[in-house]
Design a protein around this nucleic acid. Structure first.
Lengths: 197, 197, 197, 197
DNA sequence: AATGAATGAGCGTTCATTCAT
DNA sequence: TATGAATGAACGCTCATTCAT
């Protein structure tokens, strides 16, 4: 009888602990030794669960994509008006700013890393993009994809500004402005609402 | 001492050629040898002009910050209305999308790198942030800083989406929407225009 | 204690399956994991039967030495004339060329490995050498040790040439020549037959 | 101006010093660090001259093949009769036994290593084989290829026996026997001299 | 008896950096 | 000024071996 360990469960446990490590130093800069130390295991054990640094990173991305979606959905459940939803979303982002800064770090790393290496895991990201769009419908109740991507882009941009330590930008403040702009825009009776309407 | 002039000139020349190299692979992943090769000089020569990889990177960031601001200003010179300016800015960004994707890569790298290493060059970035805000005034003619940062954040976010290869997002389209939303919002007679307006 | 019997039997069973594994990759290049996989057991089980990689290898050598001698004897049983015996031996070697190539690989590995490491198992090989000489008597009916070692050396050399993928060398052809040369030499009435008579 | 080093010359110098190192421990068992130490350079320098361990080994093989041929030719130059040549060759091999034991170690390593890895450098060896055959003509003045390969195989086999520390085998003694057998065989008037003679 | 998770030293290789020329 | 040879610490990864189960 082997040592009783749920291989897959432990793998996921390790995975979730890697998030901060990768985000803080970046994919290339962090070493497997540092990750192992951060996880309180030996390098050998780390390689027992993940075949390579790249595989570890890709598995992490996938895992986080899933969790991120679930978290966002859970947060917005039951909110009715757009204003209400935006407010909740803004507060949620502001509260979890640190998390989303790390998340952006990871995503940018992933893309940079994808550009130069073999095009593994491209599917993962495509998939994520589609899910995000779907999430826009589900979460915000917005039909127009241009508006949906406007909001998502703004969110990304706000996180990026915060990541750059820009203290002039407040997520809640910006969400408040977004809410007003959106209201003004959507209420305006005349003209087509979006470029390709 | 005419040599000094040559030295500095050549240094800036090398610097500008480093942009793509750092952006494509990331700070940690690219090697001094690769940079030297890309610059068609020996590693010795590279170290003759830059004391270290970190210094090279920091000098590059500073250089790009300056150039970026100049380019943006030049682009928007003479435009009068906000709509006109946004349109020109959107087209400019769309046209130079690849450049700005690289620019974002660089900035994110820089921040990640700053977080973990000695806090060198923090000044550089702070400075840049202030300049950006100033640019909002000068370039877009927008007084309200919240609105200015809204636009800058959106721009960052759009670039990030493009960087992630999100083909659902079109910069010009989004700028068109921004223009309309902004118009609707600013025209609306009632209520205060911004959170802390 | 019937378990002891099983244990030893199973150990020999595993041992014989190791032959190809060591021969194909070499002592240093093959890993205990690969051996375990090749034997369809876990590394733990492998270590249950053999205290170390080195011990496993040494036990293998001993085992093969014994089997090799038995096989050769069995093959030549009942042959009367030298010519007849040489022919049978040549055919046998040609037929089992692959086996003897592997055997040479193993022996060379063993010696190389002996030279550098602790001088364990030196006895094994000495022993084997003496047995080979004895075999020359028994198997070929040759009294003169110089001639006996001539033949053994030639066999080794032919295998080495085949191992080096030398397609110009045919074992049967060479044995045919050996037979003729030996006949011519032994028939020649004059002079002492070997260097040190 | 760079440090003045004849890159290629130094490379060959390092190469020739690697011979013993590889021969003593075997390709897989010796480490690049050990080689570097043996060469009195850093691992970095070693990699400056050789792109990989495999490449180093292959270059070594090629180098030794060339030198080996030259040495053998130089040794036998001017000898007239076959007996004389065999005697000289035997003495030469006996004197350089240690060298040829190492050479065999290297060759066997190379083949084992070739079998399992990419089939690089196969050409090298084929080439060497042909050169050896050519050498048989030039060096020994033997026309019949079967006899030529008989002698080469015997040489290989003698070296292998010595490598296995078989003290019963003396190279000069065996060469003396070879000489006599060959004389007896070649003098014998009747019958065809060799298989395809 | 048998498993496979765990370890950490050590592997082949790379890298920022130094320095003789 | 400019070169590229040299260094050795550190990288991603592997391995023989141990041990809890």
């Amino acid at each position: 009888m082997p040592k009783i360990v749920d291989h897959d469960l432990y793998r996921k446990e390790l995975l979730s602990k890697c998030f901060d490590l990768f985000a803080q130093k970046g994919y290339s800069a962090i070493t497997m030794r540092q990750i192992a130390e951060g996880l309180n295991v030996s390098t050998g054990t780390l390689y027992h669960y993940f075949p390579s640094k790249q595989a570890l990173f890709e598995q992490l991305m996938e895992e986080i994509c899933e969790q991120d979606e679930l978290m966002a959905k859970a947060e917005l459940e039951g909110k009715q008006t757009l204003q209400e939803r935006l407010e909740v979303l803004g507060k949620y982002l502001a509260k979890n700013e640190d998390y989303y800064i790390k998340w952006i770090y990871l995503q940018v790393d992933f893309c940079q890393h994808q550009d130069s290496k073999d095009i593994q895991g491209r599917g993962t990201f495509r998939h994520a993009t589609q899910r995000y769009q779907q999430a826009a419908h589900d979460i915000l109740g917005i039909q127009d994809p241009v508006v949906a991507w406007f909001i998502f882009s703004l969110i990304d941009g706000l996180i990026v500004e915060r990541l750059m330590d820009n203290e002039m930008v407040s997520i809640t403040e910006q969400f408040s402005l977004l809410s007003k702009m959106l209201t003004a825009y959507l209420e305006k009776p005349l003209s087509n609402k979006s470029y390709n309407g």
